[in-house]
């Protein structure tokens, strides 16, 4: 009996050690961001050949100097504002276009709806890296170079397919009876969508908002291709590209920007992860 208990105890310890190993690998760069953000320069820029200076901990008092520099002497606040503008515009376009499309595919479209749904999903696989060169040409022809509008127009090309697919899955899980009942009560088919379905679809729409937000925050290549002025950049472009003076990176401010941007996104993402997985696994896990 005691041997059995010992085995169980050993297993428990094993699980913790393994879990900690994975978490350490995943979280290490964030620990490094946080440490760098608050370290004084004299603590930060010590050659790694100096084995007596332990880089893993604070060797001098923490400082807010890097964050102060970031918010007062760089364009970071402007980038946050630009990102917010693009996010709001793209979210609006995506919700207005993707929610009805997802409903149509889930409920109204017959046999061709299935194929159409898969077709829309497959366009999500056509990556920006294949399209940025022709887009650079189109954006120039439209006169949108170096304008946030170029991003507002182009970003829905990947948010709409992905969100239509997410919304379609969501509407399939809303019980059909509710809609039938409303139609018996005399609502038209369109009336049912606006008065009944949308009310139940609020969590689904919220998911669309969250994933549009994260997809826009992640985007880099279109922004890099279209935007050249520092004051028009988004966060994910400006931080890696423009927080450099000459050849010198401001690592403290740079890691501060990365940290501040990451924390809210990580929290939001964590709350919506399960729905995201459901969308991506194409129902393969439900078998």
């Amino acid at each position: 009996m005691s041997r059995y208990r010992l085995m169980r105890y050993a297993r428990r310890v094993g699980v913790y050690v393994a879990a900690l190993g994975f978490v350490t690998f995943a979280a290490f760069p964030f620990y490094w961001m946080a440490l760098t953000t608050f370290k004084q320069n004299k603590d930060l820029y010590v050659s790694a050949t100096n084995l007596k200076h332990v880089p893993w901990i604070f060797n001098a008092a923490p400082t807010l100097a890097h964050l102060k520099l970031l918010f007062t002497q760089t364009a970071y606040p402007q980038w946050l504002l630009n990102t917010l503008l693009v996010v709001v515009a793209v979210v609006l376009i995506t919700v207005v276009v993707a929610v009805p499309a997802g409903y149509s595919l889930a409920r109204l479209a017959g046999s061709w709806g299935e194929g159409m749904g898969i077709g829309i999903f497959l366009t999500y696989l056509i990556p920006p890296t294949l399209l940025f060169i022709p887009f650079s040409r189109l954006v120039a022809i439209l006169g949108l170079q170096d304008s946030l509008w170029s991003l507002v127009v182009v970003y829905p090309t990947f948010t709409i397919p992905f969100c239509t697919w997410l919304v379609m899955g969501f509407f399939r899980s809303v019980p059909w009876d509710l809609e039938e009942q409303a139609m018996i009560d005399g609502y038209s088919r369109l009336g049912v969508f606006f008065r009944v379905v949308l009310r139940f679809a609020v969590p689904g729409i919220l998911t669309v908002v969250v994933f549009t937000f994260t997809l826009v925050m992640q985007e880099f290549i279109y922004a890099l291709t279209f935007i050249s002025s520092v004051d028009k950049m988004t966060v994910s472009l400006g931080v890696p590209v423009a927080l450099v003076r000459g050849d010198v990176y401001h690592w403290g401010a740079l890691m501060g920007a990365a940290l501040i941007t990451s924390i809210p996104m990580a929290i939001v993402y964590n709350l919506f992860m399960d729905r995201f997985v459901e969308g991506l696994t194409l129902g393969a896990v439900k078998g």
Partner: peptide, 10 residues
């Protein structure tokens, strides 16, 4: 979850 460009800078 985190914007990839920021993580790559880390």
């Amino acid at each position: 979850a985190v914007p990839i460009t920021l993580a790559v800078m880390a």
